[in-house]
Design a protein around this nucleic acid. Structure first.
Lengths: 150, 150
DNA sequence: ACTAAATAGTGCGACATCGTACTAAATGCA
DNA sequence: TGCATTTAGTACGATGTCGCACTATTTAGT
């Protein structure tokens, strides 16, 4: 294992970290209240995939510990952006449903971000993103498959 | 601005977020104590670039608020992994120096991670990483240049 | 030189993240 | 069926993140 090889992989994850940092900060600047990227992510996921999912399924989707998801859902519920109902198929479990407010807030956030994305697109064209996406997905998939369980 | 375009960019940042999450968790599992990725990142940076930098320079390097860097450096100093000295060129400022313990801890962490990287390399070859790096750097650079100041 | 503005760092408070330990429900197996 | 094990979710505590406000120092404009 050469030092330069190690350095390349470290450099890669370093770039990932900084991009995550910068994009999260930008997103949160466009969200109302004390809404965080985590809150937005859940709302967005419930719309893109489907709502009615369990908290644990959401924790897996975002690769966060379930205790973190409990906390995030608590914030969404307090703000009446989602509601939790008992899971009819499992008495230990729950289902997460979007409210009308939740859908509207997500749509508004996307609208608020559109100008930023449009500006970004002038510098980083869609094709570059399309090109990167499957490669990142592959890395994500590998890390996901090899993670210590949570 | 088409919906699919928006979705591609959102998907990109989503993958970034999950990779960041997974890689950070893996890194922290290889670190002793309550050392975090932030701590390791600073140690690594001080070695790769040079030590004696100011806290603000470090905050810029990692794109975190300076108040966050103060906190991270506090943890490193408590553990005697860095020392802070007054900046001879600016009475408001300080210089961050690695200790011998700090260097050793960083080297040990990299050693502990090498097997993980080697395994990753079997699935994601070095060439893929080399290919991705400049593209990510470009996106990072754009976001950096267009961020609201901190 | 003098004063206003900018800058480096920190204290503090609000909130997020996440590991541990717990409860209740479901599952498996003898 | 009965009991041990596994699983979904939560309470709690330790620590991390970060915005705001503050102090000390430097820089800039006159």
């Amino acid at each position: 294992m050469h030092n330069e090889t190690l350095a390349a992989y470290f450099g890669f994850f370093n770039e990932i970290g900084i991009i995550e940092q910068l994009s999260r900060t930008l997103l949160e600047a466009r969200l109302p209240d004390g809404l965080t990227a985590a809150h937005f992510g859940v709302l967005n996921h419930l719309i893109r995939v489907k709502d009615g999912q369990t908290p644990l399924a959401l924790a897996h989707a975002f690769q966060v510990p379930k205790t973190t998801m409990t906390h995030t859902l608590g914030g969404l519920e307090r703000r009446k952006l989602v509601t939790l109902s008992p899971n009819p198929e499992d008495g230990r479990s729950k289902c997460v449903w979007l409210t009308e407010d939740g859908r509207q807030l997500r749509d508004a956030a996307i609208l608020a971000l559109a100008p930023d994305i449009a500006k970004l697109q002038q510098q980083i064209p869609l094709e570059s993103i399309i090109d990167l996406l499957p490669k990142l997905a592959e890395i994500r998939s590998y890390l996901d498959a090899n993670r210590d369980n949570r």
